[in-house]
Computed example of a mutant assay.
Amino acid sequence: MTRLIDDPPAEPFTAYRGDRRIRTDRAAFDRDAALRLHCLTRDLLETVPGARG
């Protein structure tokens, strides 16, 4: 996890759960919830000393 924060993958990034790709083109994927999680994660990382942002 730390490596991903320090050296994030190039866009576009695809998420997996186990060996199955997480689909973002289905009704079950909540884009608003994903954006909220993204913003919360970014805000949290901004509080970490030495974290790139």
Rank of each mutant, 00 (worst) to 15 (best):
E11T: 08
R17E: 14
A15G: 05
L45C: 02
D7K: 09
R17G: 09
I22G: 01
P12A: 05
D43I: 01
Y16H: 14
C39V: 14
R21I: 09
R26S: 06
C39F: 11
L35K: 09
R21C: 06
P49I: 11
R20W: 05
A34E: 03
R20A: 14
F13A: 14
A34H: 02
T2D: 09
I5F: 10
I22D: 01
P12D: 02
P12M: 05
G50N: 08
L4P: 00
L37Y: 04
I22W: 02
P12N: 05
H38N: 03
P8V: 00
D7T: 10
V48T: 02
I5P: 00
L4A: 06
V48K: 03
G53P: 00
G53D: 03
R31C: 03
G18M: 04
G50D: 06
E46P: 00
E11C: 07
E11P: 13
R52N: 12
D7Y: 07
D32C: 06
R52F: 05
A34Q: 02
T14F: 02
A15L: 11
E46Q: 13
T14Q: 03
D32Q: 12
D30H: 08
V48A: 04
L44S: 07
A15H: 05
R52W: 04
R21M: 12
E11D: 08
D43W: 06
L40K: 11
T2L: 14
Y16K: 13
R23E: 15
P9E: 10
L44N: 04
D32H: 10
T47P: 00
L44M: 07
V48L: 14
R31P: 01
F29D: 09
R3K: 13
G50V: 09
D6L: 15
P12R: 04
T24M: 08
G18N: 10
M1I: 12
D6T: 11
R20S: 12
V48H: 02
D25M: 09
A10R: 13
D25F: 09
E11M: 08
G53V: 10
T2H: 05
T24K: 07
Y16D: 03
F29P: 01
D30E: 10
A10L: 12
F13P: 00
A51L: 07
R42Y: 14
R31S: 10
T47G: 04
E46H: 12
L4G: 14
P8L: 02
R23K: 15
P8Q: 01
D6N: 13
F13D: 03
E11Y: 03
D25T: 13
R26E: 11
P8Y: 03
R26Y: 01
F29N: 07
P9L: 14
Y16V: 05
A51I: 06
A34M: 07
A15P: 01
G18H: 07
D43L: 10
E11V: 09
A51Q: 05
D6R: 11
R26L: 13
A34C: 07
T2F: 09
R31W: 10
R52V: 09
P12W: 03
L35G: 00
A33E: 14
I5Q: 02
T41H: 07
R17T: 07
R36F: 12
R36G: 04
A28S: 15
H38D: 04
T2V: 11
E46F: 08
D25G: 11
A27V: 08
A33I: 05
D19F: 12
A51D: 01
R52L: 12
T24S: 06
Y16E: 08
G18T: 04
I22M: 15
A34V: 11
R42T: 12
V48E: 04
P8W: 00
